[in-house]
Every structure is written in C-alpha cells, then in structure tokens.
Design a protein around this nucleic acid. Structure first.
Length: 611
DNA sequence: TCCAAAGGAACAAGGGAAAG
DNA sequence: CTTTCCCTTGTTCCTTTGGA
C-alpha cells in the first residue's frame, strides 16, 4: 500500500486503505514521479487538493493556464461511487495521462450516469445496464464524434471499476468498445473540417480591430480585445496559447542587409506536447501590425491594477462576478469578442455567412440575438490559406504553424486535397532534380539519387520540361517524395536504404534521417535554425547549464556540417552558373543570404571551432 | 513491410443557470 | 441586468496498429 505521507505532496488525505489497489502498484516513488510528469508545480501555501473535496481544481498546479478542463467535478455522484471515481482520476494520472484528458473521461461518464439515474428506475451503478447507456446516448442525438467520446469514456471508467474493485456489473464492456469504434468510423466519414472565413467579413473584422486598437478614446476592455483580435488574425495561434502570452515574448532582430528590424514571438504550446515531455516551443513571425498590437497591449496593461505581480500580456478589468483568475479564461475573451463584433460591425455580424457559426447574445430579458462569430481556429485556417495562396510552400507553413506531423501538411489549407498536394510537390522536386540539376543535400546518396533519377528519365525517353507528371506517374512507388519540416524526404528503391525502418523514424524525428534532404534554396530556413541554436546555447551557457549547452553546441555543429555548409557551397555553385540576379528573382527569400554569404561562412567557422 | 485507418488525447465553443 | 461559470458538445491533431 502506498504511504499516505508521501501522497500528501499533490492530493492530500488519500485513504489508500479503502482502495483494494488492484490498479495501483506499491511504489510510492512511482506515484510521485507520475504526478510530477503531469503537473507543472506544487502550489505554494494553500489551495492544495484534499481527497474529500467535491471539486479537484488543478489550475494552481499549472503555469500559464486557467481552464475548466483542469477542474475535476465529482458533484452529483453518490458515495461510494464518487470515491471510486476519485481513484479513477488518480489511476489516470499514474498512467501519465494529462489531467484534462482524465477529466473529459470522467465528466462524460458522470453525465451519462447521472442522467440514467435520474430518468430511469436504474438509479445505481449496480443496476445500470449496457442497454441503458445505449438508450441515453441515442436520446441525446449528438454527433458521431461526440458519441465516440462518450462510449470511450464510459468504457474506460467501467474497465477501471471492474479491474480495480473486481465488481460484477451488468454491462457488456465489449459492446461499449465496439460502439465507440463504430461511432469513430462514422465520424471520420463525416469529415466536417472548419471552413475559411469569407474574405469580406475577415477584412471588416481586422480593419475594425485595427481602428479600435488605435483609438485612445475607447474603453480599456474594448481596446485590449481589439489588440488580441489583431494578433489572432496575424499569428493564427490557438486561443489558449494566445491568452497565455507574456510581456517578454516579443523579440526582434535586425535584418543584415536592409537594416529593417523584424519581430518574432517566441511561445510555448501545450497542445502538441506530451505530458511527460517538455512543452514544445515555437517562433512565429510578427507582422508590423501584430507588433503594434503587442506593444499597445503591453502599455495598456499598466493602467490595470490586476497587472501587478504578473506578466500576462492580456488582462481584463476587474469584474463583479469574476474570480479574476489569470491568464484570462477562454470564455471571458469570447464574451468580449462577441460584444466587439456586435458593437463595431452591427450589420455584418448579424448577417449569415457561409461557414461561420452563429451564437446567441443576450440583449434583454428573454431576448437574444444571433451573432456570426468566427471560431478562433478559423483565423488559423485563414492565415494558412493566405500564406498558401501567396505561394509559400506547405513545408514552410507547417513549420510556421508549429505542426509536428506530415498529417497536418495542408490540413488547414482550403480547399484541401493532400494527395494532389503531394503529387504537385513531387513534380516540383523532380523538375528541380532532373531539370535544373539541383543536388539533394544533407542526406546519404544525394548525388546518386540525382544521377539515378536523371538516368531513369533518360532510359524511358521522357522530356523533363514537358513530361513531369508522366515521369512522376511512371516512377510510382519507386520514388516517394514528401515535404517534411525542414527539408524533403526522398525515399527511393532506386537506392539501397542503409538503415532499417525503426531507426529511420528516430532519425527522422531529429532531422537526421538519411532520407531527409534539403536543397540550397532552403538555406534561409537553415540559417534561422542556426541562429536559434546559437541563442539557446548562449542562454544556457550564461545560466551555467554547461552540459545542456554542450548538447546544443553539438546540435549546432551537426546542423552546419550536414545542412548549412553543403547548402551554402551549392549556392555558390548555382550563383556561378546562373548569376546572382537570376537566383534572387527565382528564390527571393535567399537574397539576405546571398548578400551576406562571406559573413555567414565566417560566422560558421567561428562556431565550428568552439568547444 | 508499409501506410492508411484506428485510436487516443487535447483544445475550443455553445447554452443556460447562477451570481452578484 | 449583465457577466461569469458549469456542463455538454464539437473539433483538431498526434501516435499506434492492423491488414494488404
């Protein structure tokens, strides 16, 4: 049995002796480690959770988050079921599930349970049958995706009850699982992706936001909300990440050639991060408009008393009903956002727009009006689509949006057709390799791949200039080309693969895959990576983290050796062959690099000598 | 062996009761 | 009389698996 004094660190007074502990190991250390991996901090002073509490609020255990999903509610569950459910939450945490996930599972189960108990004669866990659950879900008339969530949740709680307590309950676990899978399948077929925001509405919203942002006569809450909307439209961040921004996250950099000061925002994101890993960090380019909004917010917040003692960028005024927790919860922002649309775009916001959901807004007793409010994620869609239409390659967009997987490549771009995208991308790369004679750099056998592809084309009597799509078709499975973060993945049976699949995946994740290639025109992105590693190294060095700094330095050297140096060398060759002007017109993003190549090369050799 | 589909986890919004 | 908050529903995105 787990020692209760150890348990007190995170949740106090756990009556371990009331739990048969079939689901828990005897290892108190493991319990602590598990907790440490799913929360950021132990709250100082009061606010620690006691096992007996009806609500377990984990928000104080986290930094930069304030969300209902971290509040686990046990209200409505009878004893001893409530206690069983509390152990279910502990069990999930031991399994290193995020608390928000455990909460979704429990709250779905709870709502199903409570409704059945209220509406039927089966008013206890001992009486509720599979049939009751099925009927309750059917009665709710919800989407397939929602059904999946409920079935899955109920299934998981029941598995815990049966496994941990060895209860005999009249439910068929297999049937529940099956129903969950079925619902998932239909949900997949439905394919209801978020549409883009109509251009007319988008422009109206952004220009209204900019106007209000600059208007010093406007109220504090209205102006700060306008600033946030401007940033949302420019950055396309998730709402949670946007609300968690701090005043020190805007950075700037002088562009070497033009002397222009460019800004970027460095932020952390919870969403793509696993519970036992560090939060992933990203840099996004901050447009002048966004930078302006950031600076205005930073200045405005000084007027607000709630800004004392914290550095959150977005703070709303004190409210009568509010606990005034920080960061500002999503629903408070959403309310201000809705109000903003109605106040500054009274006609447009009440019009019906394609793909924009409408929601209620209270005006008077029993009187609501419908407002067209774009989902905050639709700004993400808009940004991606806009970038795409400007001709930005998908691989760059993926990187920019902080997407980790190839799955998301093109996900946000509407209309979306991943297969077509891949074909188009493949054709482009083939044209470059075979037609322009570019050599894939950084991986193994880049030169050989070029020669083999060119030979394949020659053998089959294709003309690279005119037959690219025919070539791609003919190559079929023999050459697979995909855009990846930071490069191009080329897998080909025309060359032997030196590594087996498992290691490949590992290498792939660290951008070291032997199949990952870059081309000289990606040198600008590589150079940015190079500079980012420099900053990380220096930051770690100056805080005395020598070991971690050394790791960064090794990464940096590897980056130079495998990618940056070969790319620059190739760039020189191409410059000689095609001339500076041609290159700069063809690859405008390279002009900075071209202008400063000598300086950059010197910079590299300085870093390579470091130890 | 390979990758599309299944699975799983997290983020976000809507609606209405509750709070002052 | 408004705004907040609780509960429920809906969407997005990352990882693993199963079957061709």
């Amino acid at each position: 049995m787990i020692q209760s004094n150890l348990a007190h660190e995170y949740v106090g007074d756990i009556p371990w002796d009331e739990n048969p502990a079939f689901a828990f190991s005897d290892d108190a250390e493991q319990y602590l480690r598990a907790f440490k991996s799913v929360v950021d901090v132990i709250p100082v002073g009061g606010g620690k959770i006691s096992f007996a509490d009806e609500i377990w609020d984990f928000n104080p255990y986290f930094d930069g988050i304030n969300d209902d999903s971290l509040k686990v509610q046990f209200i409505g569950l009878p004893q001893p079921l409530a206690d069983y459910c509390k152990f279910f939450i502990l069990y999930c945490i031991m399994g290193k599930k995020k608390i928000s996930t455990a909460n979704v599972r429990l709250s779905s189960f709870r709502s199903i349970y409570c409704n059945i108990a209220k509406t039927t004669s089966h008013d206890s866990i001992w009486l509720i049958t599979t049939e009751d659950i099925m009927n309750e879900v059917k009665r709710r008339n919800i989407s397939a995706g929602g059904q999946h969530d409920i079935f899955e949740s109920v299934y998981q709680v029941y598995v815990f009850l049966k496994g941990n307590y060895h209860f005999e309950l009249p439910v068929d676990l297999e049937r529940l699982k099956k129903a969950a899978i079925e619902a998932k399948t239909t949900a997949k077929k439905d394919d209801s992706k978020l549409p883009n925001i109509p251009e007319e509405y988008f422009i109206a919203i952004v220009s209204a936001a900019v106007r209000v942002m600059r208007d010093i006569a406007q109220d504090y809450n209205v102006r700060t909300t306008a600033c946030m909307l401007v940033m949302l439209s420019q950055l396309g961040l998730r709402l949670g990440d946007l609300l968690a921004l701090r005043t020190n996250q805007l950075h700037s950099k002088k562009l070497a050639k033009s002397g222009v000061e460019a800004h970027y925002i460095h932020y952390k994101s919870r969403k793509p991060s696993k519970p036992h890993d560090k939060m992933l960090e990203f840099d996004v380019f901050s447009t002048p408009l966004c930078t302006e909004a950031f600076k205005i917010l930073k200045e405005l917040r000084n007027k607000c008393p709630l800004s004392m003692g914290n550095d959150y960028l977005f703070i709303l005024e004190k409210r009568r009903n509010s606990k005034d927790d920080l960061p500002i919860p999503n629903h408070r922002f959403n309310h201000e956002y809705k109000k903003f649309l109605l106040a500054f775009l009274p006609e447009m916001s009440q019009r019906q727009w394609d793909g924009i959901p409408q929601s209620q807004y209270y005006v008077a007793r029993n009187k609501y009006i419908r407002v067209s409010v774009p989902d905050t994620r639709q700004y993400r869609v808009h940004l991606c689509t806009a970038l795409y239409e400007k001709g930005i390659p998908l691989a760059y967009i993926q990187r920019y949006m902080g997407h980790l997987s190839e799955y998301m490549l093109g996900y946000y771009v509407r209309p979306k057709d991943t297969f077509q995208e891949n074909v188009k991308y493949t054709e482009e790369i083939v044209r470059e390799i075979a037609g322009d004679g570019l050599t894939p750099l950084g991986g193994s056998f880049g030169e050989e791949i070029k020669v083999n592809i060119q030979k394949f084309i020659e053998d089959n009597n294709f003309n690279v200039l005119t037959d690219v799509s025919a070539i791609v078709k003919a190559m079929g499975e023999r050459v697979i080309i995909r855009g990846k973060t930071g490069g191009v993945c080329i897998k080909t049976s025309l060359m032997p693969c030196p590594k087996e699949t498992r290691t490949n995946e590992m290498f792939c994740a660290y951008n070291l895959c032997p199949n990952l290639f870059t081309f000289f025109y990606m040198a600008d992105v590589t150079y940015m990576d190079f500079q980012m590693l420099q900053h990380t190294y220096e930051a770690m060095q100056s805080t005395g983290k020598t070991k971690a700094a050394q790791k960064e330095l090794n990464k940096l050297k590897e980056l130079c050796r495998r990618r940056l140096l070969p790319e620059l060398k190739e760039l020189r060759k191409e410059l000689e062959k095609q001339g500076k002007d041609t290159i700069c017109i063809k690859y405008p993003t390279l002009s900075e690099i071209v202008a400063n190549q000598d300086k950059i090369e010197k910079e590299i050799s300085t870093w390579m000598r470091k130890s």
